[in-house]
């Protein structure tokens, strides 16, 4: 299990973590597939999570989700975490989990690591909080 603050964009399905779903955007179509962008968070950070197919209708705000072998990468120019074809997201509970909304890992600008071009490093914080999902005050 990795904390959300430690995830780094990569082209591999290696992220196993647990988070709580805070907010959902509108459900739409991406080609044949139903998709929906969501805000999820754990005690260390938040991130945008891309829901696919049945996930879009099933997961609701307040659900605690366990992600196994997920991927954090650019999808249509948005940096999102998702289960992908090889990963799995499943509901393990509701409500009883703490979270923070900042930093948001999708709102960080990443650059290639000069010492290792296959890796990303943090370059700048684009926004402290999600610019898509408003904070509830």
């Amino acid at each position: 299990m990795i904390s959300l603050k430690d995830i780094v964009p990569a082209a591999t399905n290696t992220i196993s973590t647990q988070f709580i779903l805070l907010d959902k955007g509108n459900i739409g179509q991406d080609g044949k597939e139903t998709t929906c962008l969501a805000l999820v968070a754990d005690e260390s950070a938040s991130v945008h999570f891309q829901l696919w197919g049945d996930e879009c209708h099933f997961f609701e705000p307040g659900d605690i989700i366990r992600l196994t072998n997920g991927i954090f990468s650019y999808h249509r120019s948005n940096l999102v975490l998702r289960a992908g074809k090889k990963g799995r997201a499943e509901k393990v509970g509701e409500f009883n989990m703490l979270f923070v909304e900042t930093p948001n890992m999708s709102e960080i600008k990443w650059a290639n690591d000069p010492t290792n071009p296959r890796k990303f490093v943090k370059e700048a914080v684009l926004s402290s909080h999600s610019r898509i999902f408003p904070t509830l005050l």
Binding site: P61, G62, E94, F95, N96, L98, F99, V100, L136, L137
Partner: peptide
Amino acid sequence: QLRFLLNHVKWGSQKRYQAWFAKK
């Protein structure tokens, strides 16, 4: 849920929990 809210949730973070509790 109430015990979680009153034992762990910090001032300023309660809004979402309240919304989930009310919805449920």
